[in-house]
């Protein structure tokens, strides 16, 4: 059985907000390592990989590996019934036909209990090879969100060019064109806002802005984001949390 108690229930609410528009149903794979999820969007263009490590919960118990098939819209509706400061406990027995959720307020004088019906999901699990990327950009997650939203005004796609001087996000469309360049600035006072680039080789890649904007729904989970790129392989957008991560992969656009 699974029992996982999360002191900061808001984290789970934010995680759901970050994935529910990209994927509708997914298996939460529970093991002694923690709770993981991997799912592709319906159009097979993007993939979400989530890990909530066991040490982020107190206590965390999972005697046997379990796959909890969840409709994410339903789960996010139930999670809206939890207060932001509530402690959330997830429980499922080995038959895994329901997921029990308990929300306790911080004064411990209001306890709410919900049960969510689970479903059987045939998941298409993808093997993601370990990749050494040609360019890795670490930057403020809020800045990344702003750039994607701003450039969406101009186009469906963004061209990302990375050189050792900086990273340039450019978009061209019917109404005109726009570009935002962030210079590498590791010495700024505010570490959280620094743009850092690790570069083996310059890269220039095109991606769908609709998906990138969707990925930025994870912004409340981390102040930093990393973009890992190589020519002609999927982009990795990673938000690291205290005990886990949310990774998005996006297939590049190619040719004309």
């Amino acid at each position: 059985m699974l029992e996982a108690r999360l002191q900061t229930g808001a984290l789970l609410k934010k995680v759901l907000e970050a994935i529910k528009e990209l994927i509708t149903d997914a298996n939460f794979d529970c093991s002694d390592n923690g709770i993981a999820l991997q799912a592709m969007d319906n159009s097979h263009v993007a993939l979400v990989a989530l890990l909530l490590r066991h040490d982020g919960f107190e206590p965390y118990r999972c005697d046997r590996s379990l796959a909890l098939g969840v409709n994410l819209v339903s789960l996010s509706k139930v999670l809206r019934c939890a207060g932001n400061d509530d402690i959330i406990t997830l429980k499922a027995d080995d038959t895994a036909d329901v997921l029990s959720l308990t929300f306790e307020n911080t004064d411990n004088d209001r306890i709410s209990e919900y049960e969510l019906k689970l479903m059987d999901i045939d998941s298409e699990h993808l093997g993601i090879p370990d990749t050494t990327y040609e360019a890795v950009v670490q930057m403020s997650s809020a800045e990344f969100a702003r750039i994607c939203k701003d450039l969406q005004v101009l186009s469906d796609s963004v061209q990302i060019d990375v050189t050792k001087e900086g990273v340039k996000f450019g978009a061209k469309g019917e109404l005109g064109s726009g570009a935002v360049t962030l210079k590498q600035n590791g010495n700024v006072d505010k570490e959280e806002e620094a743009t850092l680039i690790e570069l083996q080789q310059n890269v220039s890649l095109n991606f769908s802005l609709k998906y990138l904007v969707n990925f930025t729904k994870a912004t409340p989970l981390a102040s930093r984001v990393s973009l890992s790129m190589s020519s002609e392989v999927p982009l990795l957008v990673e938000y690291k949390m205290e005990a886990g991560y949310i990774r998005y992969y996006l297939a590049p656009k190619i040719g004309e």
Partner: peptide
């Protein structure tokens, strides 16, 4: 307009 690739082209199904 560039063409959108499918992720399946890059990652093998397990």
């Amino acid at each position: 307009t560039p063409i959108q690739n499918d992720l399946g082209e890059f990652f093998a199904m397990i």
